[in-house]
Amino acid sequence: MTYQNILIVKLSAIGDVIHALPVAPALKQCFPQTRLTWVVEPPAYDVLTNNPCIDEIIVFEKKRCKSLAGLYRYAPAFIRELRERRFDLALDLQGLFKSAAISWLSGAPERLVYCDAREHSDWIGKKICGPNLKGHIVERYLDVARALGCRAAEPEFIIKITAAEFAQAGAIAHQAGLDSKNPYVILMPGTNWPNKCWPADHFATLAGKLFASGLIPVFVGSAADQNAMQAIQGQSAVPLLDLTGKTSLKQLAALIKNARAVVAGDTGPMHLAAAIGTPVVALFGPTDPRRNGPCGPGHVVLTTSHACTGCWQRKCLKELECLVDISPALVYQSLVKMVG
């Protein structure tokens, strides 16, 4: 079986889109003449830009569909844009109602959905449960490509950072006081779940240890992480280089690419670092690193000692500070071994 036009539906979040990235080269190697289109929401759009395996990116503006009036105005043009491509296969890698609806509205006669489908999305596509059902999420997504006969032996992450994006990142860092020729470590205090966050005083202590050893601690994140950053600054005994809210996603990728290492919880930029190939010390509590850990060699995963680790609860039902028992000393020791 061959395909002329394949649609991938993986809308959000940033980490989830990064996990699905290896599906694109797997499909292109299997079906080199196929035109590959990816539907994504705006926050994760930059992950896909300039990817040679993706022929077209269609942005789904979910915010415009929050009311009936907005849906009425937005949906017809969006559906028409999908139908004009004449897809013969749609892969729903999101497994939610909204992604299933896009897969169905595309008009593709063949629709596959990956195994963890929810919200009855498997009613619209054929559910694919491969050999990695209990394995890493990257392998689960690749099992959908394998079900089509694609080999997909090793995950291949393609994230293209342009020379302009490297230059912009360098200028932002320089303005903040970072000489990128000096060795630095990226610290990411923000996550999208409260109980994925490492305590502010731990970040402050780690920053002091790094500063004393000649490694510059550089804090990054979105504008939403600035409150967490203020708490860290209030407890730090050393000056901190704060770039939270100051970079685009690709500019952040450029900074990560040139860093010696990254320290972060289970968050999109952590998975960005792993995909780029920068070594990561990943801090895990409520989520399971066997499913969501940094993909690839050279990383270290530190997990809280609580018996309830891997509970998959956004807020701790026991009111514990989930990651508090992962000490700054342990993280620092892991970094020293990592960077040599």
Score class of each variant (00 low, 15 high):
Met1Leu: 14
Tyr3Cys: 06
Tyr3Pro: 06
Ile18His: 09
Val23Trp: 07
Val23Ala: 10
Cys30Tyr: 04
Leu36Gln: 07
Asp46Arg: 11
Thr49Pro: 00
Asn51Trp: 07
Cys53Ser: 12
Asp55Pro: 00
Tyr72Asp: 09
Leu82Ser: 08
Arg83Trp: 12
Asp88Ile: 10
Asp88Arg: 15
Leu89Trp: 03
Leu91Glu: 10
Gly107Thr: 08
Val113Phe: 13
Tyr114Thr: 01
Asp122Leu: 10
Asp122Thr: 01
Lys134Asp: 05
Lys134His: 11
Lys134Ser: 15
Arg146Phe: 01
Arg151Leu: 15
Ile159Trp: 04
Ile161His: 09
Ala176Pro: 13
Leu187Pro: 08
Gly190Met: 02
Pro194Leu: 08
Pro194Met: 10
Asn195Tyr: 14
Ala200Leu: 10
Ala204Gln: 02
Gly208Tyr: 03
Val220Pro: 01
Ala224Val: 04
Ala224Asn: 05
Asp225Leu: 04
Met229Gln: 01
Gln235Gly: 08
Leu240Trp: 03
Asp242Ala: 04
Gly245Ile: 02
Asn258Leu: 13
Thr278Asp: 05
Pro279Trp: 12
Gly285Ala: 10
Arg291Ser: 13
Arg291Phe: 14
Cys295Gly: 00
Pro297His: 12
Gly298Lys: 15
Leu302Ile: 14
Thr303Gly: 04
His306Pro: 00
Cys308Pro: 05
Thr309Ile: 12
Arg314Tyr: 01
Glu321Val: 15
Glu321Ile: 14
Val324Asp: 11
Ser327Glu: 03
Ser334Met: 00
Gly340Leu: 11
